[in-house]
Design a protein around this nucleic acid. Structure first.
Lengths: 139, 139
DNA sequence: CAAAATAATCAGTTAAACTGATTATATAAT
DNA sequence: ATTATATAATCAGTTTAACTGATTATTTTG
C-alpha cells in the first residue's frame, strides 16, 4: 500500500468525488447541485436565517451564497423577505415547492450514500458518521 | 441535530475543504496543488507509469492529467520519456527535485491531517483510515 | 450626529475540469 | 500485408464554480 492511498486527504476526496457524481444524477433533474440542496436543507431547518448566517455555518463564500439563493429563488424554492429587525439582511423561507424538492430527493440521496459506503456494515457507518461529526464540530 | 450536518456528503466535503485549505499553505510555495502532489506521489511509487494509467487509478480526467504533467514537467519534478514498447504513451519518472519536494512537504501534510482530525484519538483515526480505504478500494 | 461596521450585491477575474477533435502509434480483421 | 479500429496524448475552446474588490443600504458605535 502506497502513501497516496493511505492519506486522508486523498481518500476523503475520492469517496466524496464518487458520491457527488451520484448526487448529481438525483439533483440535476431539479436543476440544483448538492450545495444548493444543502442551503435549502439549512433554510428548512432554520427558517428566517440570513444569507450571512448560512454562509458562516456552511462555510460558503458570501458572494457565492448570493448566487445560490438567487438560483433557489428563481426556481421558487425559497423566498427572500426583508428582516424587519435588520433591513440590511433577508429572512429566507423555504416554499412548499422547496419542501417538496427536499422530500423528493432525500431518500435517493441517502441511498446514494449507503451505496457508496456499502463496504461498511451498519455499525461502521454509524461510527464513521460520529467521527465526521466530531471533526466537523471542532472546525 | 439537523439532516444536513448528519449527511455523509456534507461532512466529508467540509472536512476535506478544511484540509485542502491547509494543504495549500504547505504546497503553494512549491507552486503545486494537492492533486499534483498526488500525481507526483503516484509516479514516485509506480515509476514508468503512463498518463493513462495514472488518470485511471486516480480518477482524474485524461486532459486534466496532461496539464498536471505539463506543470510538473515544467517545474522539473517529473520527466516524460517515450515508452519504447508503446510509443503512443510516455513513461513518467520522478526527478531528484521531485523527490525532494515530496520529502519537504510530506511531514507538513500529514501534520495537517492530524491537526484537522485532532478530535479523534489514535485508534479512531486508524479506524477512519481503514474504513475509507475499504470504501475507496471498492470504487 | 458622524464614523465605522455589517448584509447583500455586482462586475469582473481566476481556476479547474471538461468536450470534442486531432495526431501518432498500435492492434485486429480480412 | 493492408485496411479498419482502437488507444495515448494533446490541443483549442467551453463551462462551471468560486473568489476579489468595490458599492449600496442599513445599523451600530463613539
Amino acid at each position: 500500500m502506497n502513501k497516496l492511498s493511505q492519506s486522508y486527504g486523498f481518500l476523503l476526496g475520492k469517496v466524496l468525488q464518487q458520491m457527488e457524481g451520484k448526487f448529481a444524477d438525483t439533483l440535476s433533474p431539479f436543476n440544483i447541485d448538492a450545495r444548493q440542496y444543502g442551503v435549502l436543507l439549512f433554510v428548512q431547518d432554520k427558517p428566517y436565517s440570513s444569507q450571512k448566517i448560512i454562509a458562516d455555518r456552511l462555510q460558503i463564500d458570501r458572494t457565492t451564497m448570493v448566487t445560490h439563493v438567487d438560483h433557489l429563488e428563481t426556481l421558487g424554492f425559497v423566498e427572500r423577505t426583508k428582516n424587519p429587525n435588520d433591513r440590511r439582511s433577508y429572512s429566507l423561507m423555504i416554499t412548499d415547492k422547496g419542501n417538496s424538492v427536499l422530500d423528493s430527493c432525500w431518500e435517493f440521496l441517502t441511498d446514494t450514500e449507503s451505496e457508496v459506503l456499502s463496504p461498511l456494515n451498519e455499525q461502521e457507518k454509524q461510527l464513521l458518521k460520529d467521527m465526521l461529526i466530531k471533526v466537523w464540530s471542532s472546525l
